[in-house]
Simulated scan of single mutants.
Amino acid sequence: MTIIPIILSGGAGTRLWPLSWGDHPKQFLSLISDKTMIQETLLRLDGLETGNPIISCGEGHRFLVAQQIGEITNKKPVILLEPMAKNTAPAIAAACCAAMKQDKDAVVVVLPSDHVIADVKVFQNAVMTAAKEAEKGSLVTFGIVPTFPSTGYGYVKASGDEVDGAYILEKFVEKPCLEKAEEYLASGEYSWNSGMFVFKASTFIDELKKYKPEMAALSIEAFEKASDDNDFIRLNKDAFAKIEGDSIDYAIMEKTSKGKIVKLNAGWNDVGSWTALWEIQNKDSNKNVIKGDVIALDTTSSYIRGGQRTIATIGLDNIVVVDSDDSLLIASKDKIQDVKKIAEEMKKREAR
């Protein structure tokens, strides 16, 4: 069985401002290791039998994608350029068309380009379990085994007994309140919604035709009328612009009767904030994560990332400091979710 990776690289990653911003969002940054996050995403599949990776991205990121993917693989990537953002379902549909050009029976693994997974072997085993389900005609999502009652993630509910490593996908649930999250955790039936999927490309297209026929037709048209531009495939702008954008969850996964869940307990994190980065990285004796040229005196439980200059802190606790070439973030870890508001304000300033 050949598995074709589909990597979604259209996100802006504004919650990791000021490093993730504009033309250089978080998937192109080295935040965990010496490899960038998009590189880590593809390298996570090393050792499995995979075809040429398909990366879906925007026009402005095409050269970064080509460079960074080219640095880690000899396989020729298929780089699909989305004319504009239309959410995940149309991007995946076009990528499935590209996968079927490689192999009409292709099984694809759809991965966001900005996640962290600590245990690669466990992840790969889950991919193979999901791929076997996909060959039977299932649309498989990975349910992350929850470790605490998170109100920041959506959930998926499994029903029935485990069969060949998979459960029936009963329903998706939006981000819950704390009380509901605690109920979900205690029940053992709910997992965090990972946003990662495995299915046959043809099965996805057939389900899209069933539930979103216009989106399916326009996505296929956008691919069939695409133009080659050296190392890139430009989806047809006229067709793509007519698509009413939607996520794969809403368009397909919440409607299909073919949904399955493979549970994954592999140290997953979607790196949605600087606090999330602090949580998953090794800390010093003061519970600090320190990157770059930093002097931290009497400073505890903090994430401090220096840039070109020295960062010095004295007598601080529970803070985030991130220095970039042109901006400096200083925030309480408890308020770090509001970084997105800073990014929105920066956009307004640029528009003036």
Rank of each mutant, 00 (worst) to 15 (best):
P18N: 06
P18K: 00
L19W: 09
L19D: 11
S20P: 05
S20C: 02
S20E: 10
S20A: 10
W21T: 15
W21R: 06
G22I: 05
G22R: 07
D23L: 01
D23P: 00
D23G: 08
D23V: 06
H24E: 10
H24F: 08
H24Q: 06
H24M: 12
P25S: 11
P25V: 13
P25W: 12
Q27L: 12
Q27H: 15
Q27F: 06
Q27V: 04
F28D: 07
F28I: 04
L29Q: 13
L29M: 10
L29S: 08
S30G: 10
S30E: 15
L31V: 07
L31H: 02
I32P: 08
I32V: 15
S33K: 00
S33W: 01
S33T: 12
S33F: 00
D34F: 02
D34I: 00
D34Y: 01
D34Q: 11
K35P: 15
K35V: 13
K35S: 15
T36P: 12
T36E: 04
T36W: 10
M37E: 15
M37V: 06
I38D: 12
I38C: 07
Q39V: 05
Q39R: 03
T41C: 09
T41P: 15
T41Y: 05
T41W: 07
T41R: 08
L42W: 14
L43P: 13
R44W: 07
R44T: 14
R44Q: 05
R44N: 14
L45N: 07
L45F: 08
D46G: 06
G47K: 09
L48M: 08
E49W: 03
T50G: 04
G51Y: 01
G51H: 05
N52V: 01
P53E: 07
I54Q: 09
I54L: 05
I55M: 07
S56Q: 13
S56A: 14
C57T: 15
G58Q: 13
G58F: 01
G58C: 02
E59V: 08
E59H: 14
E59G: 13
G60F: 00
G60R: 14
G60N: 12
H61Q: 11
R62M: 06
F63Y: 13
F63K: 14
F63S: 13
